[in-house]
């Protein structure tokens, strides 16, 4: 259906009256780049947090504790705070990806799965190079109360 009224003409007059000009392309590229960077940075931070969580868990003999100990011991060996940080950044990364140009096309479960798998894979990879331990020890030196982050005192020396 085509226009049959004077609206296009009126609109062009309004645009001229407002002195409207299209916003430059770089502004949109910048905002989209920021969203992508936010999403990727969140995956990286989530990966680092998971690397630390993994290090703390094994440093606390987590598997051994899981095999024959009380619920309290098991609970103490799980680095809840680092896992919570991993989850938090996974959520941020999800929202970042959702807001990319085509992010809306993917189902929530697909995006969540992508973010979680990427964060965990990155965490495992970083831990392979002892990155989790290094960051954990660095945080331990910087923040004496880092015991809070482990859920246990076993990993702190």
């Amino acid at each position: 259906m085509d226009s049959n009224d004077t609206f296009p003409e009126e609109l062009m007059q309004e645009l001229a009256a407002r002195g409207a000009v299209p916003k430059p392309r770089w502004q949109f590229l910048l905002s989209r780049s920021v969203i992508w960077l936010l999403a990727l940075a969140s995956v990286v931070v989530g990966g680092v947090a998971f690397a630390i969580a993994e290090f703390v868990f094994f440093d606390n003999d987590g598997i051994a504790k899981l095999q024959g100990s009380s619920i309290q011991d098991i609970a103490q060996s799980i680095p809840f705070v680092w896992l919570a940080i991993t989850a938090f950044f996974a959520v941020v990364a999800y929202y970042g990806l959702r807001r990319t140009r085509r992010g809306y096309r993917y189902a929530t479960t697909t995006l969540v799965l992508i973010v979680v798998v990427l964060s965990l894979a990155l965490g495992v990879l970083l831990n392979y190079f002892d990155f989790g331990q290094r960051i954990y020890e660095y945080v331990g030196h910087q923040i004496p109360l880092s015991a809070v982050f482990t859920g246990s005192t076993d990993g702190l020396n």
Binding site: D2, S3, N4, D5, F7, P8, L11, M12, L15, A20
Partner: peptide
């Protein structure tokens, strides 16, 4: 994007449907 007046053709193509 080059000449503002050309936007009128797009408006004319869609204004009735959008309204």
């Amino acid at each position: 994007l080059i000449h503002r007046e050309e936007f009128a053709a797009l408006v004319a193509r869609y204004d009735v449907r959008i309204l």
